[in-house]
Nucleic acid binder design. Structure first.
Lengths: 240, 240, 240, 240
DNA sequence: CATGAATGAGCCTTCATTCAT
DNA sequence: TATGAATGAAGGCTCATTCAT
């Protein structure tokens, strides 16, 4: 078998894996995890049942793979977006929109719930804490945390916030209202409105203390910080 | 059969019903809905499987009954609390604490999730919208709405709030963070801390006088844009 | 308890028994024996399940009672009709019409089939051969046999007929075609047409040999027999 | 896998299918449809219960398959016999014998009844009219019709017969009497006697020239009426 | 006599997984 | 590697019947 064939067959393998995962994702979203039989997944993916278990040792493993994939997309798109956007508020808006978009695009409400569901239902999986899934969840969470913390550093938002609470409000608020948005294919406009409605109050609460205290306004603070960084950079450049 | 006997036998029926529901609640919470067989529920409740179906025509009906019961408790306790407490902020704190307490007392995280889960998984239940469950959910929700609206009327909080968003943040935030509190039987102190951490930011955002900032003038806006440009430059320079 | 009360309560018992049997008959006819639960029978009859088993020890016993009743009606109506009708052909037409009418009135196709069905399905009922049901079936059959034999004696029909075959043709033919008549509420006219179409060929085959043999026609024969009987009676009257 | 292996494995599948159907046929015949559990069928066929449902999606489907098979045999053997025999009477005798032989060989009394039974019990199967079973029944029936009609064309039998009635008498008569023949494994002789006894009267009625009797004249009719009156008088006198 | 709660065996069917080919 | 036939445990649910009240 030469390299070309190897590649071809490898890519065929990958294609099949992807087919199975896509089929499973759709069916899980539509009928739920327990409502979807491996037989149907195999059929929808155009492979035999045996083949399915060739790629994924277990139905649970298949679900794990889907969730891993799901988180990977979430993380990558979030990180990329953050890189391009500088303002804390805009970053939050982006994160919120991105979160909702991916959850809804992938009909992933179910997947989202299943994750929690799984952690209880299949809690005899003792290695969950060490699982890739858990790591991914942590990494995704860190992105949000990072945005908040950087916002604090730069003075855009108060520093006396309880990070975990903000996180709960952010993701919890987004997802709690998402149920209403699902079902009817919601317009982008509605999603944006939801995002705004969730982020705005949070944003205000993150700053409120500042606006009453002293005359120093936010913009001033940002200017100062930007200067500070520029100066530090200049200092470093001089050193090197 | 005199009245006393009648009462006795009636209460025996009710006792059995309660036994079954309690057993089911525990098992659902522990193993999940699909992970719990009617056989096991019956055994845990100390009745035969036939008896279980004598009381609840269907496993789904049993779940419904549990959820109905759950909401009923939620509603009653909430209403009673609101009656006794006058301040809007205190009311919100009470609602939050009560919400968490009942969810956690009844190991009801699963039940809560299942509800959502069900509404998707079993969405061929066409009469869901008219179901008691839906009504109860609505009634419970209205209690929170009432507190907010009364707070507005009395001038404790701003009137330009988007009620549904506040609601999403409140319940979503509470429940999203609850997962961490579960597991280890959390102390009352930890729960209170979580409640505070969730309610406080919301409370602040409800009062912030957006107009305090004055008409955001053109100059401010230009300054902000300048900030952003500077920050991007700084970021690029750091990278290189 | 005086006589009046006794009568009252007795008749109430009988009424209940009848209610149960009627309910069961309808349900058996509609859904089949196995498709009808005792619970539904009790409900339809307006009694409790316990009461049903008070009157009929077993579901099978209930079925037996229904079939007994059914045959009793069949027998009584047949005997009464035969008494009033003298001509053999008219008697056969009557028997046929009566048979169909009762079978169809009682939606008893099912009952009819169940009987055979039962005798196989529940053939561990070793005493079937001695059962009332078997006796009734025999008695009903004898009525037809009697009509044929009397017809032979009186010379209306050939004497070289195999009685059992004629019986099979008669009842078999009637019931085999009945299936088509069921379903749509058939008009009396259609039933009569079916009866005619079945009896006529049989009637012809019962006589065919005679018409070709000798010149002695049927009417002649009847006249002679009638004379004979009258003479015998006259003789007896003279003796007494 | 070469062709031979393919054939072998195909025939193994077919063998299994046949095993299941045979086991089911025997059990249905012996204990009835409802009296036979899939568990027992599987055991009798030497396969697991899962396998049974691998071959037949439903217990009802299995029954259908058996009936289909049964009819197919009925039709094929009937058509083949008709092809070899020319005389109408002999054809009828053959059809009758063939019908009984197959019904009894396959212990198919139950199956036969079940068919009718099913059409009531499971009449929510809306597509029954289009089912293979219905088609087969029609095709089988047409064979008999064809024999009769060809007999008419060739002048062996009268042309004023009502085909459907003849058909009812033929099949109804055969099956109605068959019950007696079942049970004890009847000798071929007894079956032949039954067949003769059923076909002979029918055959005679098919040929009788009704017109032979000449225009039943008025005198005859008056004589008959007189007979009847005399007989009624005789009957009354006998009673008293 | 009447009730209806209680029973538990048994039913049909599904399903994830294995394994010979 | 791919297949799909085979498995058998388990699932939700029904039902005729019993029995304490």
């Amino acid at each position: 078998m030469n390299r070309t064939e190897l590649n071809k067959s490898r890519s065929r393998l990958e294609q099949r894996e992807a087919d199975i995962m896509n089929a499973a994702t759709s069916l899980f979203a539509e009928k739920g995890f327990h409502g979807t039989s491996t037989r149907k997944i195999a059929a929808a993916a155009g492979v035999s049942e045996g083949t399915l278990f060739h790629y994924f040792a277990t139905k649970n493993v298949l679900l794990q793979a889907i969730l891993d994939n799901f988180y990977a997309e979430l993380i990558e798109s979030a990180q990329e977006g953050i890189r391009k956007i500088m303002g804390t508020r805009d970053r939050l808006l982006f994160l919120a929109r991105n979160h909702l978009r991916i959850l809804m695009d992938q009909q992933a409400l179910m997947a989202r719930l299943i994750q929690v569901y799984l952690s209880v239902d299949v809690n005899y999986y003792r290695d969950y804490k060490n699982s890739l899934l858990h790591q991914l969840n942590y990494r995704y969470t860190r992105i949000f945390d990072g945005v908040i913390m950087e916002g604090m550093e730069r003075g855009y938002i108060r520093e006396d916030l309880e990070l975990s609470a903000i996180r709960d409000l952010f993701f919890g608020g987004l997802e709690y209202g998402m149920r209403t948005l699902m079902g009817r294919k919601s317009s982008k406009k509605k999603i944006d409105a939801h995002v705004e409605a969730i982020v705005q109050p949070l944003w205000e609460s993150m700053q409120v203390a500042e606006t009453t205290a002293g005359g120093k306004n936010v913009t001033d603070s940002r200017l100062e910080q930007a200067c500070e960084r520029l100066e530090k950079i200049a200092a470093r450049m001089e050193k090197s």
